[in-house]
Amino acid sequence: MSLALDILSGACLFVGAVLMIVSALGVIRLPDLFTRLHGASIADTGGAFLLLIGMILQADSFLVGIKLGLIGIVLFFTAPTASHAVAHAALIGGLSPDDPGANQGREEAEEDRA
């Protein structure tokens, strides 16, 4: 039983950590802000929750499990709100959601606005 639990939690931890890497890769590789948001949301959902499940399975006391669960709940509510805030601010800030090419080379405009 304990062995099965170890294998399960190990698998969760491994897959979760790999998802974190994939998400970071997405944040680097995807072409513009709005598509990068999708890459980031993998870390907030799949990566975070698999890692938390993996840790809950290994938790040696009830309180530790509860705390991990609370972290999950906090992430569950704040992560989409933060993503939406980024997206909305970028939309208002003038980034175009339909044309990735138009968002390149905006750095100078942003930096020199002062």
Partner: peptide
């Protein structure tokens, strides 16, 4: 609804109005 859209990777709610949501 908006948070559920954002929470599923692949779709993000851009702006929210009472009867419609702009989604990327």
């Amino acid at each position: 609804f908006a948070n559920s859209i954002t929470l599923t990777p692949g779709t993000v709610a851009l702006s929210v109005y009472p009867d419609t949501i702009q989604v990327h």
